[in-house]
């Protein structure tokens, strides 16, 4: 990092760098460099696989690990049951994958492995990634909606009991709010992740600069900033869970719209 110069660039943590000389890998003319972002996706998948695999002992009386995995699947199952109903069961695979993928990514990005000289990378702080996930969720909503209801899916834009003269403006508003869903889904996660990480980096620069500037500023600036960093780290762990939950919850609510209209 730029600590030697007493400067911390809070944006450097979001830099994408190609690894293993893969900068020029191409597929059908598109660059597919294996970047640090992709590496952390791979780590996420491996850890998530290990986590779920540890819960696959299929014992009648579960151990702690199996209990943990089962409580996550049960959590997603309950959420879909509550929001979508019985039809929600077939989406457990997708929502579970989505929730756990985002949750593990968020939490891995908070790992304090910077002290070992490594750089954790939070790929959910890139809207290219969250955008893809949002588009997948939105596509599922569209496909399910049109598959189940055909052209009647458009009645989603006209809530029950709308007075006739209001149908057109309401439908327009509903249509826009519907079309904004993938953007809000993607931006919410990206912004929440980025803001927290930037805040932590800014505070860490206060700590470093404050310590370098002498005893007085250490007491006034560095120590309170460090205490605040600890508190915000705890908050960020909470946010990591909440954002994964919100993404999964909103996706299941949108799927409910597709399944049942209004």
């Amino acid at each position: 990092m730029a600590a030697e110069q007493g400067k911390v660039d809070p944006m450097k943590q979001f830099l994408i760098e190609p690894l293993f000389g893969s900068a020029n890998w191409e597929l059908a003319g598109f660059n597919i460099a294996f970047t640090n972002s992709a590496l952390w996706m791979a780590i996420t998948v491996i850890l998530l696989w290990a986590f779920v695999a540890g819960g696959m002992k299929r014992e009648l009386v579960p151990g702690r690990w199996q209990m943990a995995v089962e409580s996550f699947t049960g959590f997603i199952d309950d959420m879909l049951e509550a929001n979508v109903g019985k039809e929600g069961r077939k989406y457990v695979s997708y929502i579970f994958s989505l929730f756990m993928f985002i949750l593990f990514a968020n939490l891995l990005g908070l790992l304090p492995i910077g002290v070992l000289g490594l750089h954790p990378f939070t790929f959910t702080s890139h809207f290219t990634v969250t955008g893809v996930l949002a588009v997948i969720s939105f596509s599922i909503v569209l496909v399910v909606g049109f598959w189940k209801h055909g052209i009647k899916f458009f009645t989603l834009f006209v809530p029950h009991g709308t007075p006739v003269p209001m149908i057109l403006p309401i439908a327009l508003i509903e249509f826009f709010s519907f079309m904004i869903r993938p953007f809000s889904l993607a931006l919410r996660l990206f912004v929440a992740m980025m803001a927290g990480h930037v805040l932590l980096k800014v505070l860490s620069s206060f700590v470093i600069d404050g310590l370098n500037a002498g005893v007085g500023t250490s007491l006034i600036v560095a120590i309170p900033s460090f205490a605040l960093m600890i508190a915000i780290s705890a908050l960020e762990i909470l946010v990591a869970g909440i954002q994964a939950y919100v993404f999964a919850l909103l996706t299941s609510l949108y799927i409910n719209d597709a399944e049942h209209l209004h």
């Binding site: 190609p18 598109f30 972002s37 998948v45 696989w49 579970f96 994958s97 993928f101 890139h126």
Partner: peptide, 22 residues
């Protein structure tokens, strides 16, 4: 510079997550 790489790899790894784990 990297949008295609990001999209490609997230599709790959989320695909693995969905099909293998989910």
């Amino acid at each position: 510079e990297f949008y295609s790489s990001q999209i490609f790899w997230v599709l790959v790894f989320f695909g693995i997550t969905f099909f293998l784990i989910g």
